[in-house]
Every structure is written in structure tokens, then in C-alpha cells.
Nucleic acid binder design. Sequence first.
DNA 1: CTTTCTGCAAACGATTTGCAGCAGC
DNA 2: GCTGCTGCAAATCGTTTGCAGAAAG
Lengths: 148, 148
Amino acid sequence: MAVASSVHDAVRLRLAGADQRYTTQRRRLVEILGRSGRPITMPEILEAATGLTQSSAYRNITVLSEVGVVERIAGPDDYGRFELAEAFAGHHHHLVCEECGTVEDLRASPNLERVLGELTRLAAAEQGYVVTEHRLELRGRCAACAGN
Amino acid sequence: MAVASSVHDAVRLRLAGADQRYTTQRRRLVEILGRSGRPITMPEILEAATGLTQSSAYRNITVLSEVGVVERIAGPDDYGRFELAEAFAGHHHHLVCEECGTVEDLRASPNLERVLGELTRLAAAEQGYVVTEHRLELRGRCAACAGN
DNA sequence: CTTTCTGCAAACGATTTGCAGCAGC
DNA sequence: GCTGCTGCAAATCGTTTGCAGAAAG
């Protein structure tokens, strides 16, 4: 399943706004992240596409982060995980397998999200917080590991 | 506010179960983490108590993690953050300030917890996960930074 | 006393960066 | 063509580890 060209257009636009170019390598990164459907590590990114240099991949991930196209999250191990930002991948949460370390996406129903958003805003307000985003992390065993 | 001696007793017990000793330095770490009321970085830990060596502090944090007394979470920057595990600090969530990077604790209302429980059940059902724990991360501006 | 800690200094590994040549616009 | 990107190799920095002396039980 390829990434929609509208996504590429939007990315190009964001990059242009920061005087950045949408190069072959950056396009490939967006493709890989968009296809994976879950946050992936740098080793996984490099494995998914030959021809990417590690240092340049890091540099480009950084640039894409700065223009709000990519988000970096911290996994259970030493590796950072990268995914398309919510504006491109949609709002979702994460399931972290404590056994194999994989991180999966989870989409919640609009109903639950609405209640969640409201309650979090309320709770945080008690401590003077202005909440801009919420992210839920569920830890446990993924289907594959729970079967063992 | 000092850490209750019952906590120290429980920690000593857990350590003893792994053939580990409850040394002065480990006790001091538990004190610091227990008093902070929020996850703190290694620099903050070392600043909070003179006489702690960095390498030993890391080693002891690792040991305390292994026996389930300390938990390590990833903050917005390069530093890991450490806190007492839920068994000692109670169930709570995190507020991450996008401006200053500080991480605060947030205790949720029963209402909010109920919604989280529902999301958890949903995840388990849809993707075959066995969820053991949930953690909510709210991003935004802390009271100090929102005032600016 | 024995085993586990501690401190020091050196090692590690993910990520970053300087520099010279290449590619987008 | 100018400017910004790429690849390479070296640097950075939080964290880990080896080893010899100190402390817990």
C-alpha cells in the first residue's frame, strides 16, 4: 500500500516553507514510515530500503521532525522509533510489547477519544497545565508473544 | 517530606530476594526519588545528593529497576528519567512540558481511569494484546511556562 | 571473612557533525 | 549556477563495564 500523493504534496509544502528540498531520500523515508503502520527504528528503516546512508537518514529524519512531518518516540530499548506525525498518520495510541519490544498502533473510537480528551484537559488544568496532545501507552504482550 | 520507613523495608526485602544489599547509596537514591514526586534525570539525582558517583548511581538505578523498585521512562530530551515504581509511588500519569521539558506526575480521577480501562479492553480484543499496564502521557505547557 | 559494592577510568553505541563533492530547483 | 544535500569518517555524549580496594552481612 503506497503513500497517497496528497501526503507527498503536503510534505513538500512543509519542507518548502523551511527552505528545504523534497529529495529522493526524504521521499523514500516518508514512504517507508507511511507504509509501516507502526513506529520503526533506524535499523528497520535502513533495512527497509537499501541505498540509505545512516547519517543522512538521521539527518533527514531530524529535518522531517522539525517541519512536523515525523515524530520520534522512545521505545523500550536504546533505539528511537519514528513515525509519521498525527497530521499525516491520524490520531492513535501505542501498544508496547514487553517481551519483543515491538510498538504497534492502536486507533480508538471517536467516542472514547472525546471523553479522554475532556477528562485529560480537566485533570491537567488542576495543575495549571495547558494540554496540547495526549498519547496513551499500553504495555503488555503482543499477539505473537502472548501465544508462547 | 521523608520517605516512609515501610518503603525502605519493602525495598530491602526486594533486594534481599535477589541477593542484593541495601547500601547507603541505594537508600539515598530511594530517598531522592521518593521525595521528588516526579521523574528526574541523572544530573538531577547527582545534584540532589553530593557523594554519589555517576557510574555507581547508574549501576544502582539499574539494580533497583531489576527488582521492581525503580522505573525508567524516556523524556523529551536525551536523558532518561527515573521514578519509584507504581507499587511504591502509586498509579499515576505524566505531564510533559513541551517548552521546558519537565515531567510532572498526574493522578487521574476514577472517571478517567475507567475510560482508560475501556481503551485497554478494546486493544486487547482487537489486536490480541494482553495488556498489563497503561500509562498516559499529556503534552503541553506547564503552569510556569504557560504563564509566559 | 566472603561476597557484593564502590570509584576510577576506559569502553560502548546510538546519534551528530565537519567537510568535500553531488543534486534539486 | 547557487544552495542545500549526501557520504564518509571522526566526534559527541548518555550510559555501561573492568578492575582493585572498601563495606555489608
